[in-house]
Write a protein that binds this DNA or RNA. Structure first.
Length: 270
DNA sequence: TTCCAGGCGTATC
DNA sequence: GATACGCATGGA
């Protein structure tokens, strides 16, 4: 990763990064495409506009970002200190993963806020990506940005009807209440080993293995968590009936992203 | 109209 | 522990 400041912007060189593949692949739901190869979104309440200015070499422009903000916020959020080229080399020892990594070459894991990941993936269950974005968009409109659990204290399922999130509203409320009471402490859960952290998250109503693993992977950077949604289950049935290959050990979640994108949008190979 | 979507709670065996 | 079913909503 190399970068330099240009005016008020940061210019970043990162070949293993594609905006469409990373920001519109179903791991985060509030990045909006605002130009040909430009997205606008936020981490917590810190906004960002980012565009790809050279697709061939992988050059990006982050608008109105200081070097300090880049180092303390965006380098971490976009997981820029992880060597994805090395990960892809490792995964590509496996034939199917090799194709998935070639197809979805520009995916990176976004290190999101734990509460946003938890609540977003509660909303995601038995739902489709356009509608998930709609529900989260209405939530952010109401609060002027993604609300913290604290900001949502006191919300009832009835009060959340404007979201049109259906049966999931009561699950969001249960998560808020357990955080409010201290029964669930996301900062503490982050420090636990993956299995223990998953058990804690699953104490929340509406949080099963899949939602818990998405929270662990995208909201707590537990890259050994491997969320199994309907698409990934198809991948496992089709290519890995006897389990995942040795090459992904310890980084199952990152491998999962390549496979998820490959099966969900690749279609042709399936 | 029916089917499906980054699943899970509940009932039942 | 496994399996069947209902669940809100809206796009295809």
């Amino acid at each position: 990763m190399d970068l330099y400041a240009k005016g008020n912007d940061i210019i970043l060189h990162q070949p293993d990064f594609d905006l469409d593949q990373t920001l519109d692949c179903g791991q985060a739901f509030r990045w909006v495409k605002t130009g040909g190869d430009e997205y606008t979104g936020a981490f917590l309440n810190i906004p960002l506009r980012i565009s790809c200015v050279d697709k061939t070499d992988g050059v990006f422009r982050l608008y109105d970002v200081t070097e300090q903000e880049f180092e303390t916020v965006w380098a971490d959020y976009f997981d820029l200190n992880t060597d994805y080229a090395e990960l892809k080399r490792r995964f590509s020892q496996d034939e199917t993963l090799s194709k998935a990594c070639e197809y979805a070459w520009g995916i990176r894991i976004l290190k999101q806020d734990a509460w946003e990941a938890l609540s977003s993936f509660i909303i995601s269950q038995n739902n489709n990506i356009p509608r998930i974005k709609g529900i989260i968009g209405r939530l952010c409109d109401r609060f002027g940005g993604y609300p913290t659990a604290e900001q949502m204290y006191g919300q009832t399922a009835e009060a959340l009807e404007y979201l049109r999130s259906g049966f999931r509203a009561k699950y969001i409320v249960d998560a808020i209440e357990k955080i409010q009471s201290g029964e669930i402490d996301l900062e503490r859960i982050k420090t636990l080993p993956t299995d223990a952290a998953r058990d804690e998250l699953m104490k929340i109503k509406g949080v099963g293995p899949k939602v818990a693993d998405c929270t662990l992977l995208f909201g707590m950077y537990k890259v050994d968590a491997f969320p199994k949604d309907v698409w990934v289950k198809r991948v496992l049935e089709r290519w890995y009936p006897n389990g995942l290959p040795e090459e992904v050990k310890g980084s199952e979640g990152i491998a999962q992203q390549y496979l998820f994108h490959y099966i969900r949008t690749g279609k042709g190979e399936f």
